[in-house]
């Protein structure tokens, strides 16, 4: 029960973190060039964006949950569960970020999720 709850927290933190970070980065705007000055400006804009900060906090919370889970559950249980992350985050991208997701992209996402789940088999 404890493991299932932590797995749910891990997946939700990952999905929320990714969606929130992506939303924030769309608000911040595309990085025009990979020069140091542009990177510093981007970093300071990101540090003032609420969605980016929420996403970062959520991803850190997910990472700490992952570390704690490693002490209680086998990787062969944790990794297949995290494969759900790919599908749920894509659903979040469709519903919250209004991204257009074609059938081909859905197929690719599901294949990636299945592949990650298969990797954990003994």
């Amino acid at each position: 029960m404890k493991t299932a709850l932590l797995l749910a927290i891990l997946i939700l933190c990952g999905v929320f973190g990714d969606v929130s970070l992506a939303k924030g980065m769309k608000q911040v705007g595309a990085l025009p060039t990979l020069r140091l000055g542009a990177l510093l400006v981007l970093g300071s804009t990101m540090a003032r964006n609420r969605a980016v900060l929420l996403g970062l906090l959520s991803l850190i919370a997910g990472f700490l949950t992952f570390l704690v889970l490693l002490a209680w559950a086998d990787l062969s249980v944790i990794v297949p569960a995290t494969s759900l992350h790919f599908v749920l985050a894509t659903l979040g991208a469709k519903w919250i970020l209004q991204e257009h997701i074609s059938r081909l992209r859905w197929c690719g996402t599901v294949l990636v999720g299945l592949g990650v789940a298969l990797l954990a088999l003994p």
């Binding site: 074609s102 081909l104 992209r105 690719g108 996402t109 294949l111 990636v112 592949g115 298969l118």
Partner: peptide
């Protein structure tokens, strides 16, 4: 590397190809 892991890696590769192609 057991066959299931190779199969998983293959599925992930195919999935990434599909996503990249859709882009």
């Amino acid at each position: 590397v057991p066959p299931a892991r190779w199969a998983g890696a293959l599925l992930i590769g195919l999935g990434i190809c599909c996503v990249s192609w859709s882009e």
